[in-house]
Design a protein around this nucleic acid. Structure first.
Lengths: 118, 118
DNA sequence: TCCTTAGTTCAAAAGTTATTGAACAATTGG
DNA sequence: CCAATTGTTCAATAACTTTTGAACTAAGGA
């Protein structure tokens, strides 16, 4: 049951901008960028919104081509589609993430995080 | 009767992204960028939307801090707030404009343009 | 097998944004 | 002064987006 993703050349600029123009989704992308390489599951974002609402926002990000969601057991592993975005809109993602970095007022992910020590 | 504009530090990233995530407004910004330095009046954009609707979209751009509108007689002179945007979100405007450049499918301004020769 | 965990789907409600036309204001040229 | 030009405001409507809760599916562990 792999979820539908647009191909790189189907990714649309206004749609990407509109999708990033929501504080919850921008916070998700910001957090994904800060953990780049590490695939995260939805539950990481539960302090941003309810489970149902997260499902909605993550679907928007996926359908816009901003993220990729892979099924892994009962989880979804979510990653940024950096290569595709960089190819399609060079510099855009970096400048958005850098700007989000400086933005106090964006919701933050994992403020009450518990690290499991080995 | 000067219209209200946010100061540079009041410009918000998600609001700017949301405002640019509309094809009509993105086309306006793209065209402003292509004529940078030249202040344009609203009528330049009449092939994108009705007069009333343009007024709405131009107000959104102004309120988000993307453009500046100055009253000049019965016209408004509209310019991109490039300095403020570059200071606040370095690289963002350039990457958006470069991406819009490559985007066939965005509405275009002035396709039936008549140049007045001196 | 049964229970739990992880996430989706659906339908409804709430909220927001875009579009429209008619009426208005302000400036300028005749 | 009058008329035309340029753009705004207002109220209504249409069209979307976001949020919600309840019901569901699918996988994994006991």
């Amino acid at each position: 049951m792999s979820l539908p993703h647009p191909t790189a050349d189907q990714i649309s600029l206004p749609i990407v901008l509109a999708v990033l123009g929501d504080p919850t989704r921008l916070a998700i992308v910001h957090y994904l960028a800060s953990k780049e390489g590490v695939p995260l599951n939805c539950s990481k974002f539960l302090d941003l919104a309810s489970k149902t609402n997260l499902s909605y926002h993550l679907a928007k990000l996926r359908e816009a081509g901003v993220t990729r969601s892979e099924a892994a057991g009962t989880s979804r592993l979510i990653t940024l589609r950096r290569d595709d975005l960089d190819k399609r809109f060079p510099g855009l993602l970096d400048s958005v993430i850098a700007a989000a970095e400086g933005d106090k007022g964006l919701p933050a992910v994992g403020t009450a995080e518990v690290e499991v020590s080995a």
